[in-house]
Amino acid sequence: MSTAQPHVPDVSIEDRLYTVKYRDAGESHLGVKDPDICVECTSNECTQVCPAAVWTVEDDSDGVPSIAYENCLECGTCRFGCPHDNVRWEYPKTGGGVVFKQG
């Protein structure tokens, strides 16, 4: 076994998202189907699975996540990750949303 200390990448989610190009669709393509389900939910898997910090459940909130849809990479992970199938996920309209330059 090695004792080599790996270097920890000094990178935040903001740094990462800064590399991504977006066209703001002007309205959220994401939402929750039934807020009551989020109020009951304690596991908040949406916040765990999203690679782009779109979903946040604030400590002082009623449990319904706030949604930073502008960060969305349109990967679809939250759509499958929510165990209650409570994510409303649509394609952003008329060309809006993420615009990958590399892919």
């Binding site: 990479l73 759509r79 499958f80 990958f100 590399q102």
Partner: peptide, 9 residues
């Protein structure tokens, strides 16, 4: 240099 972050299912 990081030039793009991406994700997909």
């Amino acid at each position: 240099r990081r030039i793009e972050y991406s994700a997909h299912v």
